[in-house]
Amino acid sequence: MTAASATTLLRGFCACSGVDRTRVGLCRDLIADIRRLDDQLAANEKQMAHTLDEHGTRLREVDGIGAVTAARLIGRTGRASRFPTAAAYANYNGSAPVQIASADTGRHRVSRYGDRQLNCALYTVAMVQTRMPASAGRAYYDKKIDEGKTPAAARRALKRHLSDHVWRIILADEKRRYRLNEADTAGAA
């Protein structure tokens, strides 16, 4: 329900008693709060988009990554060069599978360690991509299903794949910014 639809519903309500009038007043206050918070969220998203433009990241070119998710990924990752490999980054964000062995069977599950907020952002991107029929993530997910993996295992594989892809993009953006800063410093001297 949006603030506009709640306002429309509230207009159709007839306040016959003092209690009803109090309820209507409380509802109006809540609707005003929702409008204020919606405006604040829109301003925050606009500010994040502006900051990401200044940052020069290419993360928003990936299906399922908007301004808010890109900001979360960059903010929670920090410097990507601190991770020597994509596997180290996957271990940090908790998307690296952990092998569980019991008797003669071995299987993998998602690590419960790592940065849970970063893991949540990657999960969100993975879920959005699996719902987009033309995305590269959906093609990867379908390929894993065709290989015989369960839907949960295919999602885990996609999340790990996305972790590697995001790390490479953030690392490339970091290197590009470093080269631009070096060129600016050399040009100024």
Rank of each mutant, 00 (worst) to 15 (best):
T57Q: 03
A3H: 02
R160W: 11
I74M: 00
L52V: 02
R21G: 01
I31N: 00
A183D: 15
A6E: 01
A183R: 09
L26C: 00
T185E: 13
A4G: 01
K143H: 07
D164H: 06
R116D: 04
C16A: 13
S5I: 15
S102A: 12
F83G: 00
M132G: 02
D20N: 04
A49Q: 15
G94C: 07
L73S: 00
S111T: 14
A139D: 11
P151L: 01
G187Q: 10
D33S: 06
A49Y: 14
R116F: 08
A103G: 10
G137I: 01
A6M: 15
A103L: 10
A87K: 03
D53C: 00
I100Q: 02
A67F: 14
S95R: 12
G66R: 05
I170V: 06
R112N: 13
G148H: 11
R79S: 02
R109K: 08
P84D: 03
R112W: 10
R79P: 05
L9Y: 14
S111Y: 14
A152F: 13
I34A: 00
S135H: 02
V68N: 01
R60W: 12
A186N: 11
Q129K: 10
G106T: 09
Y141F: 15
A153G: 11
R112P: 13
G137Q: 09
I31G: 01
A42R: 05
C27K: 03
I170L: 06
